[in-house]
């Protein structure tokens, strides 16, 4: 299922070790994910019944109900209606075949790394960037010369870098006023270029979102995707 980069991705981390839970949660939150935790397979099955996840990160060896059994149970309950991506995270060697056999989609070896999680998220919970191309068309109408659009895009990239740096600093200093102000500025330039997702997240930050850290993390993801896509559109204009 495609989602916008402005949407929060919900991930369930299933692990009986509190340390592993914390590490996975911290890493996933860097990608703007909202993370729920389960300590065993039984809790995971209950949570998956109550809530839809974009990704489940499943430990294999756990008390009460292990990851294999939990996966079989989740798949049984989902039937044909639904398929939640479940990725095994285990320290055990040669577990891959068994993981895939019970219905998991991928297998990661512990310890987890940010790179592995990034790859898994892009594969199973990829976000699509929304760009309103009519905004670019309007700007293109201003000048026959493509260099004008390039100049605008370069200015936007600078604004993006600057705003992100300011927002990170504001987050660190717990400065709600600065968060709102810099989000407002970035919202303006994003809308001008049709960067809808970035503008949406900025709007939330400007309005004083209760979870600014998550919004800034989402913004990082969205900003990177926007920069790439807009760059392609602008270069395509030449």
């Amino acid at each position: 299922m495609a989602r916008n980069t402005a949407d929060v991705r919900r991930v369930l981390v299933v692990d009986d070790s509190a340390v592993n839970q914390k590490v996975a949660k911290a890493m996933l939150e860097r990608f703007g994910c909202k993370v729920d935790l389960a300590a065993n397979g039984r809790e995971a099955v209950t949570l998956c019944n109550a809530q839809s996840y974009d990704l489940v990160l499943m430990d294999c060896e756990m008390p009460e109900m292990d990851g294999y059994e939990a996966t079989r149970e989740i798949r049984r309950q989902e039937g044909q209606k639904k398929h939640t991506p479940i990725v095994a995270a285990t320290a055990m060697a040669n577990a891959r075949e068994r993981c895939l056999a019970v219905g998991m989609d991928e297998h990661l070896s512990k310890p987890l790394t940010v790179e592995h999680l990034d790859a898994v998220l892009s594969r199973f919970a990829a976000a699509e960037i929304r760009i309103d191309t009519s905004a670019i068309e309007a700007l293109r109408g201003l000048s026959e010369d493509a260099s004008f659009l390039r100049e605008i895009f370069a200015a936007f990239e600078c604004s993006l870098d600057d705003a992100l740096a300011q927002l990170r600093a504001a987050l660190k200093n717990d400065d709600a006023t600065a968060l709102s102000r810099h989000a407002h500025t970035l919202k303006g330039s994003s809308r001008q270029l049709g960067a809808t997702d970035v503008a949406t997240i900025c709007e939330r930050l400007e309005a004083g979102d209760p979870e600014p850290a998550r919004q800034v993390a989402l913004l990082e993801v969205s900003a990177a995707a926007t920069r790439k896509r807009l760059g392609e559109i602008v270069r395509g204009a030449e």
């Binding site: 000048s143 200015a155 604004s159 270029l193």
Partner: peptide, 10 residues
């Protein structure tokens, strides 16, 4: 904001 400035100027 540089983006608006450039567009308005143009």
């Amino acid at each position: 904001e540089a983006v608006s400035r450039l567009i308005v100027k143009k």
